[in-house]
């Protein structure tokens, strides 16, 4: 089984599930359903709840993470007074589960962060510069608009494969940076000066990238 961690309101998650026959959604609601068992220093076998069903961890081959937090508004079955607390607890629990599962997690938890927080700018910028990849500086000002850079090309990285319309040397740089960051899937966006502008794992993968992701997530091993 491939587990997609996301919201049932996430259209990209739904598209991925439609394209990958082995995939099922693990939603915020699932995180508050009976059946989860995860431990530290204790012999209980680890268990998920996916799409309402209890699933033993060894049955899960891969996990695609499409959320950074669980939001209070998602927990409609919980009393409104408890939603904020339960959302924080569910987020913390999810990070723990993703760090302990024996399945391949895309993208793995990094220093206690999940989803897009794994590839936040101050992390990838430093790594990119260290690798000699040109980076478009990010300017933060208290006043005035922040101009979005004009983006021209994209390299999608899935494991050691690359896709997209970026030229080969930028695709190679993206793959090298992904490896340095421990990122298995992301889209790397470059501007017209061929400087790296943005990283995201949240967009809908191209058909080729999705096929590669499906293959990768079908094999149970850590990235």
């Amino acid at each position: 089984m491939i587990v997609i961690i996301g919201s049932r309101h996430d259209s990209v998650a739904r598209s991925i599930i439609a394209a990958l026959p082995a995939a099922a959604l693990c939603s915020a609601e699932d995180l508050t359903r009976p059946g989860w068992v995860w431990s530290v220093g204790s012999p209980e076998p680890n268990r998920w709840v996916v799409d309402g069903k209890v699933v033993d961890d060894p049955q899960v081959t891969g996990v695609l993470v499409r959320r950074t937090y669980v939001y209070p508004e998602e927990l409609v079955g919980t009393h409104p007074d408890d939603r904020e607390y339960l959302a924080a607890e569910s987020t913390a629990f999810l990070i723990f589960v993703l760090s302990r599962t024996g399945s391949r997690v895309v993208n793995p938890v990094s220093d206690g962060a999940l989803g897009e927080d794994v590839i936040r700018p101050e992390r990838w910028m430093a790594a990119a510069v260290d690798l000699g990849v040109d980076v478009a500086p990010l300017r933060l000002k208290a006043t005035g608009p922040i101009r979005a850079p004009k983006m021209t090309t994209t390299a999608e990285v899935v494991g050691d494969e690359t896709f997209g319309d970026a030229p080969p040397h930028l695709r190679a740089a993206a793959a090298q940076l992904a490896a340095a960051l421990g990122v298995v899937y992301a889209a790397f966006v470059f501007d017209r000066k061929q400087r790296l502008v943005a990283l995201s794992a949240n967009r809908l993968p191209s058909d080729a990238a999705l096929a590669a992701l499906g293959s990768l997530l079908s094999i149970r091993s850590r990235a």
């Binding site: 009976p34 059946g35 989860w36 068992v37 995860w38 431990s39 220093g41 204790s42 209980e44």
Partner: peptide
């Protein structure tokens, strides 16, 4: 560290 269980399963909690 102390043995630790995180669960939503009442039976697993009782066993622990």
């Amino acid at each position: 560290v102390p043995p630790t269980l995180v669960t939503t399963d009442p039976a697993a909690a009782r066993q622990f």
